[in-house]
Amino acid sequence: MKSIISTSGTLRLLMWIAVSAILFSFSGDMGTDSYKVYLNDKLVLQQYVMRQAATVPTLPLEGAEATDELRIYYNHCGKIGTSRKISIKSDADKKLKDWSFADVSGTDTGMGFQVKDILALGKANEKVKIIYTSNEIPDGITLASVATKDRKTASN
């Protein structure tokens, strides 16, 4: 009788270890904000946000035309933000331009503008930053930097 109890206790322990190992093997970022940036209909940048990153990704605009559209989709833990705004700032944190976007529901949550609207703002060979703010992130978060040296490409 003692060996049966000991065996069932060992089995329970092994089952607990196996279930724990399976559950902890998932590394999903549940509850994390995320954003995607599209150039026309092509995904060019996707990030998960837990806090402001130490390094900011550079948005690749090589070969972009002036009329090409950038569209940013920001997701707050599965929800769309309210009072959304995209700002362009210089490297010295000088605000160069703001776009405000209406509160929406549904699937079309993108915030769009043309490539030329960004590249025309900075000085030659300067990087500008794309900042997202909303009621959920009032201090804003830097999404990407863009090198304005590519403005010749986008102005043709």
Rank of each mutant, 00 (worst) to 15 (best):
M1S: 13
K2P: 04
S3R: 09
I4K: 14
S6E: 14
T7S: 15
T7Y: 15
S8E: 05
S8Y: 15
S8V: 14
G9Y: 12
T10V: 05
L11H: 11
R12E: 06
L13D: 14
L13A: 13
L14G: 08
M15I: 12
W16T: 13
A18H: 11
V19N: 13
I22T: 13
I22P: 06
S25C: 12
F26P: 07
G28D: 12
M30R: 15
S34L: 09
S34M: 09
S34H: 05
S34G: 12
Y35G: 05
K36I: 11
V37R: 02
V37C: 05
V37D: 03
Y38G: 05
L39Q: 08
L39I: 02
N40E: 10
K42E: 07
K42T: 14
L43V: 03
L45R: 01
L45Y: 06
L45Q: 01
Q46N: 09
Q47Y: 06
Y48M: 08
V49A: 04
V49F: 07
M50P: 00
Q52P: 01
A54C: 04
A54P: 08
V56R: 07
V56K: 03
L59C: 05
P60W: 05
P60E: 08
L61S: 10
E62M: 06
G63R: 03
G63W: 06
R71L: 00
I72Y: 00
Y73S: 09
Y74W: 10
N75C: 11
G81D: 02
G81V: 00
S83N: 15
I86K: 00
I86V: 07
I86P: 01
S87V: 01
K89C: 05
S90V: 02
S90C: 03
S90Y: 01
D91A: 08
D91T: 02
A92M: 03
A92L: 10
K94V: 07
K95E: 11
K95R: 09
L96I: 07
K97C: 09
D98W: 04
W99N: 08
W99M: 03
W99T: 04
S100R: 07
S100T: 13
S100Q: 11
D103N: 15
S105A: 10
D108M: 05
G110F: 00
M111C: 01
G112D: 10
F113I: 06
F113Q: 07
Q114Y: 12
Q114L: 13
K116Y: 10
D117E: 15
D117Q: 13
D117P: 03
I118H: 10
L119V: 10
L119T: 10
L119N: 02
L119P: 01
A120S: 14
A120C: 05
L121E: 04
K123Y: 05
N125G: 03
K129S: 09
K129G: 08
I131H: 03
I131A: 05
T133W: 02
S134A: 15
S134M: 11
S134P: 14
S134C: 09
N135E: 14
P138S: 07
D139M: 00
G140W: 00
S145D: 14
S145V: 12
V146C: 06
A147W: 11
A147H: 14
T148V: 02
K149I: 10
R151Y: 08
K152W: 13
T153I: 10
A154Q: 07
A154G: 15
S155K: 08
N156M: 10
N156K: 11
